[in-house]
Design a protein around this nucleic acid. Sequence first.
DNA 1: GCAAAATACTTGACAACTCAAACATATGTC
DNA 2: GACATATGTTTGAGTTGTCAAGTATTTTGC
Lengths: 144, 144
Amino acid sequence: MSTVNSSLQLLMNLSRAQAIIARRLDSLSAHGLGFNDLVLLYLVGQAPGGKIKRIDLADKTGLTASGITRLLLPLEKTGLVARKANARDARVSLVTLTAAGRRVLKEALHTANAVALDLLPKEQLKTNASLPGILKLLGANITV
Amino acid sequence: MSTVNSSLQLLMNLSRAQAIIARRLDSLSAHGLGFNDLVLLYLVGQAPGGKIKRIDLADKTGLTASGITRLLLPLEKTGLVARKANARDARVSLVTLTAAGRRVLKEALHTANAVALDLLPKEQLKTNASLPGILKLLGANITV
DNA sequence: GCAAAATACTTGACAACTCAAACATATGTC
DNA sequence: GACATATGTTTGAGTTGTCAAGTATTTTGC
């Protein structure tokens, strides 16, 4: 009989939740952005000075540096982000938001916030934040 | 100033955690299995009668039916799972484990359990079991 | 009992990543 | 100040999914 410890079980549940959430946010976010695109724009917007290294984006998102390069490519092409050199270190190329990028980010965040609240109501998050509660909650809200 | 509510923030953290976890389990699981392959084998093994519909696998994993078809394809080819018809309904083709599948599953679960405990120690899971707490914990254990 | 709708699965075309290796620059050591 | 090593980014090739549309079968409602 193949069994699984509670940690692995939890990782499986997280995996399921994330798959469903990402899919839902991908399709709803509109504005031509996927969930990760939105996260990237958001992180750039939040970064001190409005600029951030690609490797820091990789760290904050959990993706690889390679993935970041590939995700940013279309965002550069459509003019939502731009490159800026770093005076101190010629290896890095900083990512910044363009005016268009800020505008799209704002709109997309509005939508995404609503979807997130739908998936995971804020008040439940606060009061019932025990593990069984949360899993049930994710499971319940998410069930197809 | 673009802001994000706590629910969306949590989903972003969850996304990060999942990306890192899946990557880690993918590379360590060995036996030629990715994380999702392992989950599929496990779910088949746990299913009553040792057989399960593809659509139920999709539901339990959070993936699409299409994704399940594509993930199972190599597992069928290497002989870890097999097909069984359903007498009552000719549309469904049930998934079962082969003897080889059971053996590989058992070995892979052993590895995956260890990795999961490394990422998310069981005793911490009990005491500090709020989802934000868990994600913080994952973030801490995970930080590169 | 038959057309319309729903369900289970697969397929073609493509997107969103990964890994490994390359390249460019920076930093430490002696 | 040269050489080994570390860091930041990109690229080639492949994998792992998605979506939309198709096929096959079952269920529903009249």
